[in-house]
């Protein structure tokens, strides 16, 4: 039985998926920053978080990531993808690129994803819960109703989010996200 009949196999790359996730992370990151200025509830949520709050959501092992946190004077900013030089208080790791694809093609909502053990979160729990609520609100803004109703357990009814607030908010968030 000669050994070299059974060669070593290097793992390939999934470039397209990584690009797609990177773009989505960039959009969501900027959208969070936009929403923190536009939406009252998001502002409150961030208000409750500690001042040096710095969240880093990235895909293992070396996939794309996004960092959102409060800068020196407490404003919520999207801080790109490189964690060097930043003190991360909440580190949310998605176990593999396929898990990230499931989340960002909205086949699995954030809650279902963490229920299915796709995320490995280290950092204190209250911040995580706050971030999940923020993410739900941002998704309501970013995406049409049909898609978000999959991604969220309960789509905010008329009472919680008046249509005026939703559509105006959506416009403002899009504007802020795509203007530098």
């Amino acid at each position: 039985m000669n050994i070299n009949k059974y060669p070593e196999i290097k793992s390939g790359g999934k470039l397209i998926k990584k690009i797609y996730v990177a773009v989505m992370l960039w959009i969501v990151g900027r959208a969070i920053q936009a929403a923190s200025r536009v939406d009252r509830e998001v502002k409150e949520e961030f208000g409750r978080l500690s001042d040096d709050f710095m969240m880093h959501l990235h895909v293992l092992p070396s996939g794309p990531g996004m960092i959102v946190g409060k800068d020196k004077n407490g404003k919520v900013k999207y801080m790109g993808w490189n964690p060097k030089g930043k003190k991360i208080t909440l580190d949310m790791k998605v176990k593999n690129i396929e898990g990230a694809m499931l989340m960002f093609t909205f086949q699995e909502s954030t809650c279902v994803a963490s229920a299915n053990n796709r995320l490995a979160v280290s950092g204190n729990v209250p911040d995580t819960m706050a971030f999940i609520r923020i993410l739900n609100i941002v998704e309501t803004y970013l995406l049409p109703k049909i898609i978000t109703s999959f991604a969220v357990k309960r789509y905010p009814k008329w009472s919680q989010m008046s249509p005026m607030r939703k559509y105006a908010g959506r416009v403002l968030v899009y504007v802020r996200t795509f203007t530098f």
């Binding site: 729990v125 995580t128 706050a130 999940i132 969220v152 357990k153 309960r154």
Partner: peptide
């Protein structure tokens, strides 16, 4: 209770 990790797994949202 809103910030307790168990809320994620509850079938319905709670505010």
């Amino acid at each position: 209770s809103l910030n307790d990790g168990a809320m994620v797994y509850n079938p319905e949202d709670l505010d």
